[in-house]
């Protein structure tokens, strides 16, 4: 970005400043007139302006042209800050830099466990505990002296925690955490809430706002940052994915499709009316297309497949 001029701002900085002003949504005729005068004053001004304008246009215009891309860009979470640090170290490439990382927080080597589409995997943790990740899941492992922390970033897991009264096993999600000394826990990160179940031995739920709830063995709840609600039926049914099954005991179709999503590459759109239809049955997650077809045979729905990555489900009486 040019020389290090300490006092005078570079022409590029001036051009950037102009762009900031003109995009404020409140730039008036007087601003535009002054901008025009600045451009006319010097060819180097025009050059600097053209570069800044082009830089922004190249980055933005292709995304802006596509409505879905625009929404996707706005919905995107930021890049991970923690990794930003690692990247910076890799960029510097000095021995001191990466050695600092190498001897960084305990357990960092285990972090970033992820599973792809249609892939379930079991990971062994350093204390002998095990993590089974559902397809399309992401987890960071941060074991420390005070607790064994697992951060569920996406998807679902079943954790089998080895007993360690001194270091509780904690699964953290966007809405709160589930804690136990030794237990088998199911935790699923949904879009706006967390689903948690105690499959074996009790556990403790604590939402981000501080609400606490004890889970007896076999119980399941869903919670957001503030509130905890019971989930009817045994918790074990929610973990059927662990053996490749989707068990629907009067589940809304929307929920069935949500469980299928990590097993298919494309996206499934369900109309609101179709999403509320009730489903009964047991399905094999490994064959999501067959599940969809068999749903279409038993429910009053219509499937439309577009190029393999978009499937639309609507009721037959919808147009």
């Amino acid at each position: 970005m040019g020389r290090r001029a300490a006092a005078a701002p570079s022409l590029r900085d001036v051009a950037i400043d102009w762009m900031v002003t003109l995009h404020s949504g409140e730039a008036g005729a007087a601003d535009r007139e002054r901008h025009r005068a600045w451009l006319q004053a010097d060819a180097r001004h025009r050059q600097a302006w053209a570069e800044v304008e082009q830089g922004v246009r190249r980055a933005v215009a292709p995304v802006k042209a596509d409505a879905a891309a625009r929404r996707a860009a706005l919905a995107l979470p930021g890049r991970r800050r923690a990794l930003g640090g690692v990247l910076a170290l890799a960029g510097v490439g000095t021995a001191a830099g990466w050695l600092a990382y190498r001897h960084g927080p305990a357990g960092a080597w285990l972090a970033d466990l992820r599973t792809g589409i249609g892939e379930r995997r079991e990971f062994a943790l350093e204390d002998g505990s095990r993590l089974l990740l559902n397809a399309g899941s992401a987890v960071d492992v941060r074991f420390g002296a005070a607790e064994r922390l697992v951060v569920l970033r996406a998807g679902a897991l079943v954790a089998t925690a080895e007993p360690d009264a001194a270091r509780p096993f904690v699964v953290r999600t966007a809405e709160g955490e589930v804690r136990a000394d030794a237990a088998r826990l199911l935790v699923r990160q949904e879009e706006a809430w967390t689903l948690a179940g105690a499959l074996a031995r009790p556990a403790q739920v604590r939402t981000r706002a501080g609400r606490e709830r004890r889970l007896q063995e076999g119980e399941a709840v869903r919670f957001d940052a503030a509130a905890v609600a019971d989930v009817p039926g045994p918790a074990a049914g929610l973990a059927a994915w662990g053996c490749g099954m989707l068990v629907a005991d009067d589940l809304p179709l929307g929920e069935v499709v949500a469980q299928l999503r990590p097993y298919r590459a494309g996206f499934i759109r369900v109309s609101r009316r179709a999403a509320s239809l009730r489903v009964l049955g047991a399905f094999a997650l490994e064959e999501p297309e067959r599940v969809l077809d068999s749903l279409a045979q038993t429910l009053p729905i219509r499937l439309a497949r577009y190029g393999g990555w978009l499937t639309a489900i609507s009721t037959r009486d919808e147009t």
Binding site: A68, A69, R71, A72, A75, L76, G266, F267, G307, W309
Partner: peptide
Amino acid sequence: DLERAWLEALAAQPEEVA
């Protein structure tokens, strides 16, 4: 993640696009 975000936005659009 980018691809997924786009597919989700696509699926959420009111009109059917392919």
